[in-house]
Nucleic acid binder design. Sequence first.
DNA 1: TAAGTGTATTAACACTATTAATACACTTAA
DNA 2: TTAAGTGTATTAATAGTGTTAATACACTTA
Lengths: 140, 140
Amino acid sequence: MILLDYRDRRPIYEQMVEKLERLIASGALEPLTKMPSVRSLAMELSVNPNTVQRAYAQLEQDGYLYTVSGRGSFVTAESEWKDSRQSKALEQWTEVTRQARDSGIKKEELERLLQDVFVEEEAPDSEQRRKAGRKESEDD
Amino acid sequence: MILLDYRDRRPIYEQMVEKLERLIASGALEPLTKMPSVRSLAMELSVNPNTVQRAYAQLEQDGYLYTVSGRGSFVTAESEWKDSRQSKALEQWTEVTRQARDSGIKKEELERLLQDVFVEEEAPDSEQRRKAGRKESEDD
DNA sequence: TAAGTGTATTAACACTATTAATACACTTAA
DNA sequence: TTAAGTGTATTAATAGTGTTAATACACTTA
């Protein structure tokens, strides 16, 4: 399902969250899909079940999974996590924008830069990848 | 010159950087002002000289101070640090804006929010404080 | 040359994060 | 009912990192 990079200095559970999050956000793992059990994925990756559990807990926290005790963990529908993802993004954006303002950057400069960032969007974004059913950078 | 808050969980040197940075950015410490020596400030605050040294090194890294070995550390002119501060702010802003875009937030929403943030600016900002020679939230 | 300055190196220490070991609780199906 | 599969909670071992301290060095000036 995923591959761990042992040269990556980040903790295992964090790698797992990132990779699984991408799989879900990209649509590679469709809603209602049953995730591997913590033990089976732990076995597959040769890590402790608690490590998988921690990754799953984080993903659940972020709304990407839901869990039924005794049954397993499942992928949630996009509508479940899209809102909270955007809320967090907005909050962070506002804070950073205030910092930029306080450093003396002019509003007009940010307005110009904003246009540029949204022109980049011509490149395939997660939404387009999802609809096309494609995926990228997800190993194995 | 500054006061440490021992209830603050952050490391001492980090508190010092923050407080001194404000003093400098607000203009309370004018350019060319000689900073206290690492030993004297360490004595005054009852911390190790290396802790002060670390704070000074950070401030120098960020362009707020410059040092002449054997002579002391001095406050730099605003022009010295303003650019790098804005560069960092812009870089961070661009990254966060991309994240917001990728989460599906529309350009128009960010444009609206941008106006709001710059309306807040009616409150006194560091630039205005500096010109008025006032200060705030700097203890002792 | 002495006193004051910043700097480099090393180590002690504490703290936190990460992972593991283990036992518990729930669900399902035989 | 029970066994096997599931997630969960608790505790601990461990490693790693960050922070601070001790100390010696190097430079500047009077």
